[in-house]
Amino acid sequence: MRLFPALACTALLFSLATGAGAQPSLADVERGIVSVSAWGGTPANPAQAQPQTISYITLHHQGEPFPQGKDPVQYLRNLQTWSRTTKHWLDIPYHYIIDLDGKIYAGRDINYAGDTNTEYDPMGHALIEVVGNFEEVEPNQKQLDAVVDLMAMLAAKYKVPVDHIASHRDYSAQTVCPGKNLYRYVQEGYFRKKVAERLEGK
């Protein structure tokens, strides 16, 4: 995977801060998020945004195949362009995107409510997208670990209770998102349990 200089620098600093194989602190998780400017995106216009206060953490999937070797940076740039020009949304609908390697990228400013193609109101939700179509493939362990780390960081920062961790399909009858193979981890309580452990410092 080709990394732009800013992304390579972010990855190196994150590795040095956490140590090889070590579980990152929640502060390190936040510092390791690749910023919009680092992946070449542009900020949304705040005059067009709906400000929000985070009360929920909600998991989505991309819903399309994401093969090994696909460039996540180009994917994000394309997603931002499509969101604004085709959908006429403020920005990428999700606040965070997790790639195949478990790297976390910033999307829409979390202070602004997301968007959805379905009937649920995402106001107050921190939206996380994991790349891939999990109706067809399984999430890998790096992605699962990144979801836990990110959810725990968000829960701690915004005082979100673990029982407010759910997925798109829990709020909408119009979707199977985040796909049966990722939804299983929501349905069986895996993410809530792991996030609770992270918040307890385990």
Rank of each mutant, 00 (worst) to 15 (best):
N78D: 15
L13A: 10
P139T: 06
I33Y: 09
K142H: 12
R31S: 15
Q50C: 06
T116L: 02
E188R: 14
A113K: 11
K103D: 03
D99A: 07
F191G: 01
M123T: 15
L12D: 07
Q143G: 08
A196H: 06
Q68G: 00
S55W: 01
A173S: 13
A173P: 00
G40S: 11
Q141H: 07
E197P: 00
S15N: 00
G132K: 04
W39A: 09
A38N: 15
V186Q: 06
E138Y: 07
G189A: 09
V160E: 05
H95T: 06
N45T: 08
G40I: 07
V29I: 13
E64R: 10
L90M: 08
L150Y: 10
D71F: 03
N133L: 06
E135C: 11
E64F: 07
A113C: 12
I110V: 15
Q62F: 13
S55L: 00
E129P: 00
A22W: 01
R184L: 08
V34C: 09
K157N: 09
F66Y: 13
A113P: 10
D91L: 07
A8Q: 13
W82E: 11
C9K: 13
A156G: 09
A22R: 10
N117P: 00
G69Q: 03
G124K: 05
V73L: 12
L26P: 06
E30S: 11
S35Q: 14
Q52W: 08
V131P: 03
G107K: 11
V148I: 13
Y94S: 01
Y75D: 04
T81W: 04
Y185D: 06
N181G: 02
I98Q: 08
K103L: 03
H125S: 14
D109S: 15
G41I: 08
V148L: 06
V176S: 14
G189Q: 08
D28Q: 15
G19S: 03
S167R: 04
P24I: 01
D101I: 00
L26F: 10
P51I: 12
G40Y: 06
L90V: 04
G32K: 02
S83R: 01
M123C: 14
L127K: 13
Q141S: 12
D115E: 14
L100P: 01
H60A: 11
A126Q: 04
A152K: 01
Y96V: 04
F14D: 15
K180W: 06
T58F: 02
W82Y: 12
E197N: 01
G107W: 09
C177A: 12
L182D: 02
R198Q: 07
L199K: 07
E30A: 14
A27R: 05
A126S: 14
N78S: 14
E197G: 00
K159D: 11
R198L: 01
R108D: 07
V131Q: 03
R31A: 15
G32R: 02
T85Q: 15
N117A: 10
I92D: 04
K142A: 15
V176G: 06
A20G: 06
A11G: 02
M153N: 04
G179Y: 03
D115W: 02
P43A: 13
Y112F: 15
L199C: 06
V186T: 10
G201Q: 04
Y190N: 01
P72T: 12
K157S: 08
D101C: 04
S35F: 07
